[in-house]
Amino acid sequence: MKIPKPRKRGETYTITVSYQNRRYYCTRDTASECEQWAALKLLELKAQTKIENGELKPKFLFRDLNTKYYQDVGQRNPSKSSREWIKGQYNNFEMKFAALAQKSIYDISPKDLTLWRNKRLTEVGENTVLKEISHYSAMFTFAQKELFLLNENPWMQITKPKKPRSRDRRIHPSEIELILKVLDYEYGRQPVLSQHFVAWGFLFAIETAMRRGEILAMEKKEIFDGHVHIPKSKNGDARNVPLSEEAKALLELIKHDGRKIIPQSENAFRLMWEKRKKAIGLNDLHFHDTRHEAITRMVRVRKLKVETLAKITGHKKIDVLVNTYYNPNAEDLIEAFNR
């Protein structure tokens, strides 16, 4: 389409562009600026027409989708832990995807994502990659079914990493002693310093099978005679956790006036735990292993039925509880068999 000539109006120039029975006007200081605007405006109008006719895809980068998903889905997620996790993915997006973040979502292919998956597996474990693939796949499904930008989800066309074997890590009494020693804590001692509360939380987790986040969120008003009430657990439901005599004794050691049992942020607690366990060479010990240890002890010592155990631990799927968290050794199985 031929670009019209600008017209001088006083000290400035104006130009009019006609496209599909509509007129668009512009005023600039020079004639060349008017011509440049007109050329770009015509290209923009033609491109928009092709988009509306389905001949051309609109420009929508992967990074734009990441922002849109975070604003529309992440920030409105009813679960605080899920919101925080999605926020972490949003903040680290550019670092994880590099040049791929600048690519249009229409041009991202299964090959691109397979190459990303392979590189990511050299940086983190299979479980992390599986969780990330699930997150970004949900993002593209959002673009497909809510924004109507895509016809298919390329994440659904790649092979996911094989889920690693569930951890069956038990905690030996000698390891408990090492943890308490490096945190300068003794049984029966009132926790005062930050490191003491980490040790206290470690012991309380072994007695109750509560998750780290649940213990850190635990408030004094949720402690009752014989049990702890968790108003909202990982699966979204409330549950009551019975207290052993050892767990009651640990709670009696809490003397401060704060609202929460452990007056410490989750990040500070985690960093203290990671730093001190590394100092004594227990890198393979995860705080979550206390849950394995506690559940196995509950079965071995208290002879709890699996249905009762599931109510205590908050598991909705019995097979996950039995196959993932109950980790008996040969002696435990022989004793149960003969009993």
Score class of each variant (00 low, 15 high):
R9A: 11
R9S: 09
E11H: 12
T16L: 10
Y19A: 07
N21Y: 15
Y24T: 14
R28G: 06
E33T: 01
E35K: 15
L45P: 04
G54S: 07
P78Q: 04
R83V: 09
E84H: 12
K96N: 15
F97E: 07
A98G: 05
L100A: 08
L100P: 11
A101M: 08
K103R: 11
I108L: 07
D112T: 10
D112L: 11
R117I: 06
N118W: 07
G125P: 07
I133C: 06
A138C: 04
F140W: 06
F142H: 00
A143W: 08
L147F: 07
F148V: 07
L150V: 08
M156G: 04
K160Y: 14
K163F: 03
K163M: 10
D168I: 03
R169D: 10
L178V: 04
F202A: 13
F204L: 14
E214S: 11
I215M: 13
L216Y: 06
M218I: 12
I230P: 03
S233C: 00
S244K: 13
K248G: 02
K248R: 10
D257Y: 03
D257G: 04
R259Y: 00
P263Q: 05
S265Y: 01
S265E: 03
W273G: 00
K275M: 06
K277A: 07
F287H: 03
T290W: 03
E293P: 11
A294W: 13
R297D: 10
M298C: 07
V306R: 09
H315V: 09
V322D: 09
T324F: 07
P328K: 12
A330I: 14
D332F: 12
L333V: 08
L333W: 02
F337E: 05
